[in-house]
């Protein structure tokens, strides 16, 4: 392994969510081997890795969709067992899935509170939910024309906004975002990155899964690289170059992306030296 692991900046005591030695096997495939991850409150941790590196499996283990074969999950200082998506939600871990998991036929309010409806004895309290929806959308400074229109009539960025706002219902401590900018345009991506900043400002632990190095470097505090189901490297974002990241992700420092960056830097250095 060529990537160098920097010393771990997150003190284990302050982490709100901490995974230790997670293993997961699907038949003959060892999807995760001894994977660790920490998130502190008010910290954005980016989880990067190539296709098949185990990012999605790890996300699904944290959100309770899969059960790990081994390892411990510590949440808010307690070792927990996440038995299912609703248990994760009850603990305070919410997930924004890549395909958003919204119901097109329901309006914004219904989607925000789906599975966590407010009401008494099974009867919905629409007024409280609508009021709360506006509050949530306002904390994200989100622009949604109406909370009473079906999701189908919203743009891609607005849907992502609704999905992220939904992750805040029920006051979670950790929010996981799976490829939140994958299908978005430039302006909408910027809007979503702003939302992530705001999540950090409100003191949440954020886990961001992304393929986009620019996005990761724009918002993350720490970057955890997975490769072939193992922790490959961990970086502080300020001390990291794209070159190092790419090298850690691909497991090799000799590829075209890294080469070009190196050439550019060499040229830049040469230029600086001349002047």
């Amino acid at each position: 392994m060529t990537a160098t692991t920097t010393e771990r900046p997150a003190p284990a005591g302050t982490a709100v969510l901490s995974l230790e030695g997670i293993n997961k096997r699907f038949g003959a495939v060892q999807a995760l081997t001894d994977v660790s991850l920490d998130v502190a409150p008010g910290e954005v941790v980016a989880l990067v890795g190539d296709n098949g590196a185990g990012k999605s499996t790890l996300i699904k283990i944290i959100s309770g969709v899969y059960q790990p074969d081994g390892g411990t999950i510590t949440f808010a200082g307690r070792v927990v067992h996440v038995g299912g998506p609703s248990e994760a939600q009850a603990l305070g871990i919410s997930t924004v899935f890549q395909d958003l998991a919204l119901c097109d036929n329901l309006d914004v309010v219904a989607n925000l509170f789906l599975g966590q409806e407010k009401g008494t004895a099974g009867w919905l309290d629409e007024v409280t939910m609508e009021k709360e929806s506006w509050r949530l959308l306002r904390t994200l400074s989100a622009k949604i024309p109406s909370v009473r229109i079906p999701i189908a009539s919203l743009s891609g960025g607005q849907r992502q906004t609704v999905a992220i706002a939904r992750s805040l219902v029920g006051a979670p401590k950790v929010v996981m975002l799976d490829e939140p900018t994958a299908a978005l345009g430039v302006a909408q991506t910027a809007e979503v990155l702003n939302l992530i900043e705001r999540l950090r400002e409100t003191g949440l632990g954020v886990i961001l899964v992304s393929h986009n190095m620019a996005d990761v470097q724009a918002v993350a505090d720490r970057i955890i690289v997975l490769r072939l189901g193992r922790n490959a490297a961990e970086f502080n974002v300020d001390e990291t170059t794209t070159e190092q990241l790419v090298a850690a992700i691909t497991g090799a420092s000799d590829n075209v992306v890294a080469d070009r960056i190196r050439r550019n830097q060499a040229a830049h250095h040469a230029g600086a030296h001349d002047a």
């Binding site: 969709v65 998506p85 997930t95 119901c103 789906l114 599975g115 966590q116 939904r166």
Partner: peptide, 8 residues
Amino acid sequence: EAARRSGI
């Protein structure tokens, strides 16, 4: 799928 993932 969305319903299932939201804990319904």
